[in-house]
Amino acid sequence: MTTLTRQDLNFGQVVADILCEFLEVAIHLILYVREVYPSGIFQKRKKYNVPVQMSCHPELNQYIQDTLHCVKPLIEKNDAEKVAVVIMDKEHHPVERFVFEISQPPLLSISSDTLLSHVEQLLRAFILKISVCDAVLNNNPPDSTLRQQWSFSKCIHPIGQAWCSFTVLVHTRDAATRNMEKVQVIKDFPWIVADEQEVHMQEPRLIPLKTMTSDIVKMQLYVEERAQKT
């Protein structure tokens, strides 16, 4: 086993690659499980040796990829404290927040086994927890029984319907945003400081989902759920 610092090799890059790959799978799965998009756009795939649902909608997939492409330099430099997948109501107020709290140790002891097998096993547990999290969460607006009725009637959507949408929030430091700037320009995917209305949640209920501790990263996933969703 070798002990490396963050400066050795491009270790930060390896961790960022692993985490961004994981976050991509996690975001697709959250959108499926929480019914942000119609289930028809999702296809079953196998990731981390477990079945997951991944979108096949090109624009949505590109959006998720562009988002993570911009987040990656922050993770690489250990500047992303939290990455949150936020489900919002029609007024763009958060109803649910899946928060990935990330911390990386300054000294790293790695071996190929650690990287490939152990971390994969830990990330698999997160995926499995996300797959079943709907059991502990309340329905998002509109109510799922109404969704089923519209689905059966093949109605695209009622006029003025209040479906939820999603965004990704990154908790970082002001100085670290420089690491993002180049990618933002290349991808034509600018980022802004979130408004209070996008961040503040009324009386959130906190549901811890999973924690992992490995040699390369510590991560905690919890959900913050608004008490009154409708």
């Binding site: 949505l60 695209i156 479906w163 990154v170 908790h171 970082t172 980022w191 979130a194």
Partner: peptide, 17 residues
């Protein structure tokens, strides 16, 4: 400390539908 988000909105459910 700052909280950042993409300027662009994700595709709407209606558009995806």
């Amino acid at each position: 400390k700052v909280i950042l988000m993409p300027c662009k909105n994700s595709p709407s459910r209606e558009r995806v539908q």
